[in-house]
Structure formats: C-alpha cells, structure tokens
C-alpha cells in the first residue's frame, strides 16, 4: 500500500473519526423504542402503523437524561411545543412566579419548588387545595408519601421527571441563604 498520507494527517483523520463516532453515539443513545417493540403495545395490532412512534416526535426536542428523555419544561419555554391551554385554543392561564423552600429535609439539601414551570402546565386547582394547602408549610409532605404516589408523587414518578432525580428538587444547599416561606 502506498503511503500518501503523513503521520500528522493520519492523526488528524483518526481524531475526526473518533469525533464522528462520538457524535453518532449521541444519536444512537437518544433512540426511543418503537411501539411495536416497547412491550406495551400488541405487535400484532395492524393499527400500530397509523400511530406515531415516540422517537419521531421526541427526537426533535431538548433532551434530558431521565423519563421520556425530553426536557419538557425547556421544550415548552423554547417554543419546541405550544400545548393548548384549552381544547379549542387559548384560554386564560394563571401564572405564578414564586418559589417555595421546604426546610424540613433532614441532612439532604432543601427543596425548592418553583411555581413558574408548574403553572405553565397546570391550573391552580390541580394542586390546591386538595393535594397541597395554599399556605406554605401546612402540608405534611414526606418522601415516603411521595414515593407512594401522593403529593409531588402524583405527577413526579409517573409523568413528570422521575423520583430518582433527587437533586432537581433537593437543590438548595443546607448552608445556603434560603429563607423559610
């Protein structure tokens, strides 16, 4: 074989190849199972061909490491999706931009609950007053209740980011400056 490339360009080529493989690997990682293979749908159902496969929609959205592998809050904020606020179009949306700090977290970082991303998706009445009292600190939230599907666990761990993502809620360091609300 005639060597027409110098060592330097071979090195450069190799690095390029490695970079390409790394990029390709990210693409492979982001793949979603098709409905036929997901173990949940009946592969013998002929109507599956008419249903959208998750990857076709979710592959275009900001990625996340858990759940659907989609950062739904960012997808909404950055305009990847524009979910309607009522069946037939737009209705008034009550937005709230306050943060609640939960201090009673033992040795774990405190919990910061941001109203903003929640009120983009949900109506006040979805959480108040049945699941959570409006008065901060008046609801006896515990991790075991959450894991059983109560309080935050009504959505988190079922459809919003899963409960294995501890740091997303427990985000305020214990020695931080957060004040009780």
């Amino acid at each position: 074989m005639i060597r027409i490339v110098s060592t330097t360009s071979t090195l450069a080529g190799s690095i390029l190849l490695l970079a390409f493989v790394c990029l390709a690997s990210t693409a492979v990682y982001a793949e979603w199972q098709t409905l036929k293979e997901d173990g949940l749908h009946d592969p013998l159902n002929p109507a599956l061909q008419w249903l959208q496969n998750p990857g076709d929609a979710l592959g275009r959205m900001p990625s996340d490491s858990a759940g659907n592998k989609v950062d739904w809050v960012r997808a909404f904020e950055d305009g990847y999706i524009r979910p309607r606020s009522s069946i037939h179009g737009e209705a008034e949306v009550k937005q709230l931009d306050t943060e609640i700090i939960m201090n009673d977290t033992g040795s774990l970082p405190r919990v910061m609950f941001p109203h903003k991303p929640h009120t983009r998706w949900l109506d006040c009445e979805n959480c108040h007053e049945q699941i959570f009292k409006s008065k901060a600190g008046a609801t006896p939230v515990t991790m075991s209740k959450i894991l059983e599907g109560e309080y935050c666990g009504v959505c988190h761990g079922a459809v919003s980011f899963p409960l294995t993502e501890c740091n997303r809620c427990h985000s305020v360091p214990l020695n931080g400056t957060a004040k009780s609300q």
Binding site: Q52, I81, P83, R84, I87, L122, D123, V159
Partner: peptide, 10 residues
Amino acid sequence: WFHRVRFRCK
C-alpha cells in the same frame, strides 16, 4: 407524551 405535546396538563 403524545398528548402533552399538544395540550397542557390542565
């Protein structure tokens, strides 16, 4: 996932 692309939870 399909429905939340199109509609808010509420």
